[in-house]
Simulated assay, not measured.
Amino acid sequence: MHPARKQRLILVLVLVALSSAAVGFVTYAMRNNMDYFYAPSAFRAGEVPFEKRIRAGGCVVPGSVQRSGDSLDVRFAITDGEADLEVVFDKILPDLFAEGEAAVVTGKLMRDGTVRADQVLAKHDENYTPPEVAESMAGDASCGHGAKI
């Protein structure tokens, strides 16, 4: 092999190795920032890890919202039509949050089966449905205007 070709081959191999290492380090660093989406029925099936940051979505079950009298604590349930999931939230709820409407919560699954949410997103537009929420809500007519979330 000609020395110039050998030098180029070594340079290309080093660049590929460094690029692969950089992608590996970035992926490793981001693994703690990923929020996996689960439907309430996945919680019932035991597919959701405890104490890891997750997202869950569904319709707020009518009559399930319980507000604390002396703090901001709110307990409510969300459903995907197959199972209900209890959520505990200790901040101010969004203005569009309502019973019978869609919500997506971000938080951690606690050992008692509730989700301790640190963020609640409420339905903001009847025409937009996040793909992962639409899949989990397919066929559930109990949420606001049919299955629209």
Score class of each variant (00 low, 15 high):
65 V>D: 03
84 D>A: 05
38 Y>C: 04
64 S>W: 02
63 G>K: 13
139 G>T: 07
51 E>G: 11
32 N>I: 10
145 H>A: 12
127 N>H: 04
20 S>D: 13
39 A>S: 12
142 S>K: 10
66 Q>V: 08
111 R>M: 10
10 I>T: 12
25 F>K: 10
131 P>E: 12
31 R>K: 15
66 Q>T: 08
44 R>W: 03
127 N>D: 02
137 M>D: 04
12 V>W: 07
136 S>Q: 06
47 E>Q: 15
119 Q>N: 13
28 Y>F: 15
107 G>W: 01
40 P>C: 05
85 L>Q: 13
55 R>D: 09
100 G>R: 07
34 M>D: 13
87 V>F: 00
109 L>I: 06
84 D>P: 01
59 C>P: 01
122 A>Y: 14
92 I>V: 05
96 L>I: 02
137 M>Y: 02
11 L>Q: 15
80 D>M: 05
37 F>T: 10
80 D>Y: 08
147 A>N: 03
36 Y>V: 11
3 P>W: 10
48 V>A: 02
33 N>A: 12
16 V>G: 11
20 S>R: 07
136 S>A: 15
42 A>F: 04
31 R>E: 15
61 V>A: 03
17 A>Q: 07
103 A>R: 08
12 V>M: 08
57 G>L: 05
111 R>G: 05
41 S>M: 05
17 A>R: 10
96 L>C: 07
133 V>C: 02
126 E>L: 12
111 R>Y: 07
3 P>T: 07
1 M>P: 02
31 R>A: 12
30 M>L: 14
36 Y>H: 08
97 F>D: 12
73 D>M: 00
107 G>Q: 05
125 D>V: 10
22 A>T: 15
96 L>T: 12
47 E>S: 15
33 N>Y: 10
93 L>M: 13
145 H>C: 04
128 Y>S: 04
101 E>R: 11
98 A>E: 04
121 L>Y: 09
91 K>W: 00
143 C>Q: 02
45 A>P: 04
39 A>I: 06
80 D>N: 07
92 I>T: 03
96 L>M: 11
82 E>V: 08
126 E>P: 03
50 F>M: 11
58 G>D: 05
71 S>C: 00
5 R>T: 09
48 V>F: 08
130 P>M: 08
69 G>E: 01
8 R>A: 14
112 D>G: 04
81 G>D: 03
71 S>A: 01
46 G>R: 09
71 S>H: 00
74 V>D: 00
38 Y>F: 06
116 R>W: 03
114 T>R: 09
9 L>K: 10
50 F>H: 09
64 S>F: 02
64 S>G: 09
97 F>L: 11
122 A>T: 11
106 T>P: 02
61 V>C: 06
147 A>Y: 01
85 L>C: 06
6 K>Y: 07
25 F>S: 15
